[in-house]
């Protein structure tokens, strides 16, 4: 995941996403509307990648929409930036990043991504048979860390 062009390191560090803050938001979401409203809000928290970074080398395969992923490692911690041209997908991507952003290789390797999506009430969205790209993205994140 080391592209020739990368967003600046500060941009990676500027992104604040933490799964421990996100989970409570979903505990109170009683139906799909509330869950997906939260997901869209999260998507908005992910900065839009500039055109120059929306390139094929950064594209995540297996996604019906376009999704791009960038990664950098600073002092043993992994930081990510990602974007998608679909809003719900972008929110789902943000959920995934929240679980891994700023974590060590070991934390990422042992993180139970499926359990996390189940807890969010999004069982099934991470399945390899879905075309939302999350499965491929999760694999790419685990592989880069």
């Amino acid at each position: 995941m080391s592209q020739a062009v990368q967003p600046a390191t500060e941009e990676f560090l500027a992104l604040k996403l933490d799964s421990s803050e996100i989970l409570p938001l979903f505990d109170n979401a009683n139906n799909w509307q509330e869950r997906y409203r939260q997901i869209m809000l999260l998507g908005k928290a992910l900065p839009k990648l500039d055109e120059e970074f929306r390139v094929e080398q950064a594209q995540v395969r297996g996604c019906e929409s376009n999704a791009w992923l960038y990664h950098c490692e600073i002092e043993g911690k992994h930081y990510f930036l990602a974007d998608s041209d679909a809003r719900i997908v972008k929110g789902l991507v943000a959920l995934l990043l929240a679980a891994c952003h700023g974590k060590s290789s070991e934390e990422i390797a042992t993180f139970d991504i499926e359990g996390y999506f189940d807890r969010l009430g999004l069982t099934g969205q991470l399945s390899p048979s879905r075309t939302n790209g999350l499965f491929a993205l999760a694999k790419a994140i685990k592989a880069s860390a």
Binding site: W32, Y36, E64, S65, D85, A86, R87, I88, V89, Q125, T131, N132
Partner: peptide
């Protein structure tokens, strides 16, 4: 809107 977003929400 992106067709995939619409598909995900209809599936719900």
């Amino acid at each position: 809107e992106h067709h995939q977003d619409v598909g995900i929400l209809l599936d719900q």
